[in-house]
C-alpha cells in the first residue's frame, strides 16, 4: 500500500481493471448471445452489431427444431444424471472399503486403483469402441453410460473425506452392532455431503461436456448428446450458420445455471482435488 497514491484513486483503478478484464473474458459469450438473439438475416448481414436491439427468439427456436436439441438435451440429462448417481454410489462403496475395512493386499489394490487414473481416454477409446461395438452398444444409452463409470477420482475424493472422520465413530457404531452398509448409509455418507456434492457436480459437468467418447460411438440422432448435436448444427450451410449460436445458448444454459448455484461447492471440491489429488 503506497502512501503517495490516495486510497480512493487506487480503488477506482482496481475496479476499472476488473471491469476491463471482465469485458474481455465475457466478450465471446456476449457476442454469441447477441448473435443468437438476432434474426437470421440480421446475424448474417450485421454480425458486428453487438448491442441488444431487435431481439428475437427465432434463431434459438430454429436451432431447437432443426438440431433436434430437445431430444439431445434429454439424452444429455439422462446420461449425465445416471452417470452422476452411479459414480457416486460406486465411489462411496470403494472409498468405504479403502477407508474402513481391513483386508490383505489393501495397499497393492489401492495403488492399482490410483494407477488407472494415469491412463488417458485417448489410449482406451479405440479398444473400448470395439468392445461396445461387439456388445451391440453403439448408438445406445448403455454405451454412453457404462464406460463413463470407470473412474477413481471419486473414490480418492471420498476416501480423503472418510479418513478425516474420527475412528471412534466407526468403533462406537460397531459396538452398537451397526454393519458396514448401514454405517456407510447412515453415518459416513451424510457426514460427507459437501464432498459428495462436489463430486456430483464434477461428474455431471464432465459427463455433460464429454465430447471424444460420444463422438466415437454415437452416429444416430436418437442417442446423440447435446455436444454432438451442436457439432451437427455447425455443419449447416453458411446461410444457416447462425443456428449454432442458438444451439450454444441452449446447451450452455443449464450448466451456467448450475455453476451460479453451486459455485462455492466447485471451489471447495477443486481445493480438495488440487491439494490432495
Amino acid at each position: 500500500m503506497r502512501a503517495d497514491v490516495p486510497h480512493g484513486l487506487r480503488r477506482v483503478g482496481r475496479y476499472s481493471l476488473l471491469a476491463l478484464v471482465s469485458a474481455v473474458v465475457l466478450f465471446p459469450i456476449w457476442a454469441v448471445l447477441m448473435q443468437a438473439f438476432k434474426s437470421g438475416p440480421d446475424a448474417l448481414n450485421h454480425p458486428e452489431s453487438l448491442l441488444p436491439t431487435n431481439l428475437t427468439l427465432d434463431t434459438v427456436r430454429a436451432a431447437w427444431t432443426e438440431g433436434e436439441l430437445g431430444r439431445a438435451l434429454f439424452n444429455s440429462v439422462v446420461v449425465a444424471v445416471v452417470v452422476t448417481i452411479c459414480v457416486m454410489l460406486v465411489s462411496l462403496l470403494s472409498a468405504f472399503a479403502f477407508s474402513f475395512l481391513q483386508f490383505p493386499g489393501k495397499g497393492v489394490v489401492f495403488v492399482a486403483f490410483v494407477a488407472t487414473m494415469l491412463v488417458p481416454a485417448e489410449v482406451t477409446v479405440v479398444v473400448n469402441r470395439r468392445t461396445v461395438e461387439s456388445w451391440g452398444w453403439l448408438n445406445s444409452y448403455q454405451g454412453l453410460i457404462i464406460p463413463s463409470l470407470a473412474s477413481t477420482f471419486g473414490m480418492l475424493l471420498l476416501r480423503q473425506m472418510f479418513l478425516q472422520l474420527p475412528k471412534e465413530l466407526r468403533e462406537a457404531a460397531s459396538l452398537d452392532g451397526v454393519g458396514n452398509m448401514r454405517f456407510l448409509w447412515e453415518v459416513a455418507a451424510p457426514l460427507s455431503r459437501p464432498t459428495l456434492g462436489a463430486l456430483g457436480l464434477f461428474t455431471f459437468l464432465g459427463t455433460w461436456n464429454a465430447y471424444l467418447w460420444p463422438s466415437q460411438i454415437i452416429k444416430d440422432r436418437d442417442h446423440r448428446t447435446i455436444q454432438i448435436a451442436l457439432e451437427g448444427l455447425s455443419g449447416a450451410q453458411i446461410n444457416r450458420f447462425n443456428l449454432v449460436t442458438g444451439g450454444l445458448v441452449i446447451a450452455s444454459l443449464p450448466i451456467f445455471a448450475m455453476l451460479v448455484v453451486f459455485q462455492r461447492q466447485l471451489v471447495r471440491g477443486l481445493t480438495a482435488g488440487a491439494v490432495k489429488g
Binding site: 478484464v21 471482465s22 473474458v25 465475457l26 465471446p28 459469450i29 457476442a31 454469441v32 447477441m34 448473435q35 446475424a43 448474417l44 454480425p47 458486428e48 453487438l50 459437468l205 455433460w208 461436456n209 464429454a210 465430447y211 455436444q227 454432438i228 451442436l230 457439432e231 455447425s234 453458411i238 450458420f241 447462425n242 449454432v244 449460436t245 444451439g247 450454444l248 446447451a251 450452455s252 450448466i255 451456467f256 448450475m258 455453476l259 459455485q263 466447485l266
Partner: peptide, 26 residues
C-alpha cells in the same frame, strides 16, 4: 472469471467458430 469452466470443449470451440468464421464471424 470462473464462468468459462462451464463451457465444454465443444461449446468453447463453437463460440470461437462464431467469432472467427471469415465471412460472417463477429
Amino acid at each position: 472469471f470462473s464462468s468459462t469452466v462451464a463451457t465444454s470443449v465443444a461449446v468453447a470451440s463453437l463460440v470461437w467458430v462464431v467469432l472467427l468464421q471469415p465471412e460472417i464471424g463477429v
